[in-house]
C-alpha cells in the first residue's frame, strides 16, 4: 500500500467483515448490502472502535494503531447519539473543544455549522427537544465541525420521514460536494448511491461483492441484493451475469416461441402498481420481476396465483463477467 492522500484501507474484523477500500480526497463511497453484510462493522473498524487487523491509512497518516481520539474523524452513528445533557450548540462545539480550541472559538465554529445546516435557531435546545430531522442535522454538523479527514455516515436517513429524508439528502449532497476529505456512507437506499456516491462498495456476507461507479453498479449488479434495490432482474450463470429490466419481459399464458434459454414458467406471487405499469413478481426459477400495462394485466387476468410464461429478447439483456477480485477501482 502506498501513501495515499485519500483513504487506503485493508480491514479484517474476525467473523464480521473483510474488505479493502480505496478512495481519493473528495470521494463519497457509498456502502450498500443486505443486513448483516458488515457495513456498520466496516465503519466501526475504520473509526477504530472495534478490534481489527489490517491497515488503515487516511490522508497519508497511518491510523492502524492510532487511538480513536487522535484520528481526524467524523462519525455519525446509526442511533444519532447526540449527548442528551448538552444543547445542540454544545454538542457541535464538543469536538473542537476536545481538540483544544478555546471555548468561545469552538462555539463560533459550532454556530456557523448549525447555521449552515439551517438549525442555527435551535442552538440552545437539547436533543430531546429536536425532531428526528433536526437532530440528524445537528449530528452531521457535529461530525463535520472538527474538519475530519474521514467522514463516516452510518445510515444517516434511517428512521426519518420520507419527506425529511429527501430534504436532508439534498442538503447532505451539497455539503459533501464541498467536503474535501473522504466520506463513507452506509445506506439501504439505491437512491443514495446514485445521488450522493462517487463510488459504490457492495458488501455481501462480510466480503466486497462489487465496487464501481454508482451507474455501473446500478446497471450491472452482481448481487441479488443490489439487483432488487435497483429493480433489475439479474441471473447468474457461473461467472457470467445477465441483467434485464422488468419492462423488457414479455408475459404470456402460452409457451412463447424462440430462444429456449430466456424463458421461464411460474406463478404470479404479487401484482402491484409501479409507475404507469403493474409490476408482477413471478415465482419462476429464479424469481423474476415483470412489468405489464394495466390493460394487458386485465386481459390476461394476471392476479396472484396465475401461471404464466415469461420471456425476454436476447437483444434486451446485458451480459457481463463476474470479477472475482472484487474489482477495486483505480
Amino acid at each position: 500500500m502506498t501513501r495515499a492522500p485519500g483513504l487506503a484501507a485493508q480491514v479484517e474484523v474476525r467473523g464480521r467483515v473483510v474488505a479493502e477500500v480505496h478512495a481519493e480526497p473528495g470521494d463519497v463511497v457509498v456502502v450498500i448490502g443486505p443486513n448483516g453484510a458488515g457495513k456498520s462493522t466496516l465503519l466501526r473498524a475504520l473509526a477504530g472502535v472495534v478490534p481489527m487487523s489490517g491497515r488503515v491509512e487516511v490522508a497519508g497518516v497511518d491510523w492502524t494503531t492510532l487511538p480513536v481520539p487522535a484520528r481526524r474523524l467524523g462519525y455519525v452513528v446509526q442511533d444519532r447519539s447526540l449527548f442528551p445533557h448538552l444543547t445542540a450548540l454544545d454538542n457541535v462545539a464538543f469536538g473542537p473543544r476536545a481538540r483544544g480550541v478555546p471555548r468561545h472559538l469552538a462555539e463560533q465554529t459550532a454556530r456557523a455549522w448549525l447555521d449552515r445546516f439551517g438549525v442555527g435557531d435551535l442552538a440552545h435546545r437539547r436533543p430531546r427537544e429536536l425532531s428526528g430531522g433536526q437532530a440528524q442535522r445537528v449530528a452531521i454538523a457535529r461530525a463535520l465541525a472538527t474538519e475530519p479527514d474521514l467522514l463516516l455516515l452510518d445510515e444517516p436517513f434511517a428512521g426519518l420521514d420520507v419527506g425529511v429524508a429527501a430534504t436532508l439528502r439534498l442538503e447532505l449532497a451539497r455539503h459533501l460536494a464541498a467536503y474535501s476529505g473522504v466520506a463513507l456512507l452506509v445506506t439501504h437506499d439505491a437512491l443514495d448511491a446514485v445521488t450522493l456516491g462517487s463510488q459504490v462498495v457492495v458488501l455481501d456476507g462480510g466480503r466486497v461483492a462489487q465496487t464501481g461507479s454508482p451507474q455501473d453498479v446500478a446497471a450491472r449488479p452482481r448481487t441479488e441484493h443490489v439487483a432488487r434495490l435497483v429493480g433489475l432482474n439479474v441471473l447468474r450463470d457461473g461467472d457470467t451475469f445477465t441483467a434485464f429490466s422488468p419492462r423488457d419481459v414479455t408475459v404470456s399464458l402460452e409457451p412463447p416461441h424462440g430462444s429456449a434459454r430466456l424463458q421461464w414458467h411460474g406463478k404470479v406471487s404479487s401484482a402491484v402498481p409501479h409507475g404507469d405499469a403493474i409490476r408482477l413478481r413471478v415465482e419462476s426459477s429464479p424469481p423474476l420481476l415483470a412489468d405489464v400495462t394495466p390493460q394487458a394485466g386485465a386481459e390476461l387476468g394476471l392476479a396472484p396465483g396465475r401461471a404464466v410464461w415469461l420471456s425476454v429478447k436476447a437483444t434486451a439483456v446485458d451480459r457481463y463477467a463476474h470479477d472475482p477480485a472484487g474489482g477495486a477501482p483505480t
Binding site: F83, A98, T146
Partner: peptide
C-alpha cells in the same frame, strides 16, 4: 458506553470524556 465512544470519535481523551460526558450522564 455508546456516548463514550462518540466522545472519543470527536477527539476527547478519556479524562475529558469522563468529565464532560460520562459523569454528567
Amino acid at each position: 458506553e455508546a456516548y463514550d465512544v462518540v466522545a472519543a470519535t470527536l477527539g476527547a481523551d478519556r479524562w475529558t470524556t469522563f468529565r464532560r460526558v460520562t459523569l454528567p450522564l
